[in-house]
Nucleic acid binder design. Sequence first.
DNA 1: CAAGACAATCTAAAAATTTGATTAAGTTAA
DNA 2: TTAACTTAATCAAATTTTTAGATTGTCTTG
Lengths: 308, 308
Amino acid sequence: MRIDIDAFNVLQVLVEEGSFAKASERLHKAQSAVSYQIKKLEQHLGVTLFNRDHYRAELTPEGKVILAEGQRLLQHLANIEHLASRYSQGWEPKLELIIDGALPMEPIMSALKLMSEHNIPTKIQLNMEFLGGVQHRFERDQADLMLVKDYRTGPSYHPKSLPTITSVLVAARLHPLSQRRDISLPELQQHVELTIEDSSPGKRARDEMQFGGDKVFYLSGFIMKKNALLKGLGFGWMPDFLITEELANGELTTIDFVGGNRFSFTPQLVSTSERPLGRAGQLFTELILQEFALYQQQQTGLSGAGLG
Amino acid sequence: MRIDIDAFNVLQVLVEEGSFAKASERLHKAQSAVSYQIKKLEQHLGVTLFNRDHYRAELTPEGKVILAEGQRLLQHLANIEHLASRYSQGWEPKLELIIDGALPMEPIMSALKLMSEHNIPTKIQLNMEFLGGVQHRFERDQADLMLVKDYRTGPSYHPKSLPTITSVLVAARLHPLSQRRDISLPELQQHVELTIEDSSPGKRARDEMQFGGDKVFYLSGFIMKKNALLKGLGFGWMPDFLITEELANGELTTIDFVGGNRFSFTPQLVSTSERPLGRAGQLFTELILQEFALYQQQQTGLSGAGLG
DNA sequence: CAAGACAATCTAAAAATTTGATTAAGTTAA
DNA sequence: TTAACTTAATCAAATTTTTAGATTGTCTTG
């Protein structure tokens, strides 16, 4: 039979009260039960915890150390119980989020920061993917939430719309396309198009927004893409919130494509009823909506251009 | 009723074996006992640990975390049991040593270093005192061992002799006493004597080795005393091992006092049968004897002067 | 489809803990 | 000093907890 952790509690109360009788009273037990528990603990540990030579039993030096260690053990157990009680209150142990790299990071990070300040027991895993990679990963990992530009509807998906975001077709100031007006598709196709590499393994043939030219550079994220654009390597779509400054100071300019140089999309926060959200997932949903709205307000306030 | 820590062990085996039946076999219990333990643990924690929808019960995400936490808790308990088993093997939880600042620190530190390398469960407290302060503290603190120059014999004290140490009466090269020969006591008394302050509260009137002059400087340790001597502030006794170099290069010189300029004492390692030594105390006793012998050998080997 | 594995549930048995009473030893106060 | 009280161990009986063994319904495998 293994050691009884409750005995450490008896030990603690006994030391605090100073006598077996008073301890038994506080523990709502008979005095003999306290004697029994302590004796059993001593036998299990093979250590004499109390010196019974005198009238009142007093803790031995070994007993003092065992008492202190026992208290730490009880605390450890209490922590586990607390964790469990959080779970039973609906907090999930883990929340896995897949987010699309095309979306603004700032409101996402703000939401996560707020999450961490709520002191929740849920471990949060955040993964970034691009294009089809988002949904692929969401399904492969059985993740809890995905934050996407768009997605193929799947089994019992529950989408929630976030504020709309606009992308702009741009090139560097000195790029040939920046000098021309009323640009046709064939003309566009003669230049290098910069695009983000789809991170899903079974890639779709092409992003819907690609132009179909021969010269395409695939890049591994918007930071890279922006760098490439600024260096004049080619042209491409960029979310406007990533280049507000460069558009304002003229480093990048919008391309006058006859088919249009702006398009908007509405990011979706998607969960599936196969894996219902716990409290952490619900909290994140609230916070991300709030933070995206806040972000939009700030953007419109600053640039006057808006996102919708 | 409190949670049963044994249930975490059942949980662990159950997960390792993969089925209730196999786990019960490995635990030498009936399958129903395993079911009972897991159910009880789930009720205590208020958390579903296993998903029984499918043929084989499988751990829920919550269960995974609880399992991991439970393993840490079991490890914690095992550590306490290990500590206790060391105590029951005769290791004391604490060993308090009082050492006399007049003794060479090097062999003491070597002995303590060797102690720590033995990976013992005993916490060691080391206190340094001077003269009567050593014994005072030994008795007040109910310490386990004192390492002293000399002591008043007390209740059931058990002394053990260490190698003899020699002190020399010295002054700085430029001090007036260093220039004279056949110095008498009255002449000595006209100069400032440097001595270590007795750290006991009820100080004895005077150290036996003091000369009784009017001008006495009390210092708080041998480092201070050596500094004062080197600055020519006065004369005084110094253990030879602390000033071998200064005697060799002439910074300090022995005083030609007619009453003699050397005296020897035999440090004693004292314990009392009121507080018998545990294994750590015994080990320290062995090591300190060994290290003092080694230290003496090194000193004689180096200086040729010896300590005895 | 049959044989077998799996895990819950039930009852009886076993083991543990608790109770309440008793005792011997130590303390306190008149 | 004694009488009254406190302390903590011990014991048998009562109670509670845990286990074993049997049974059942479900699912898997060949």
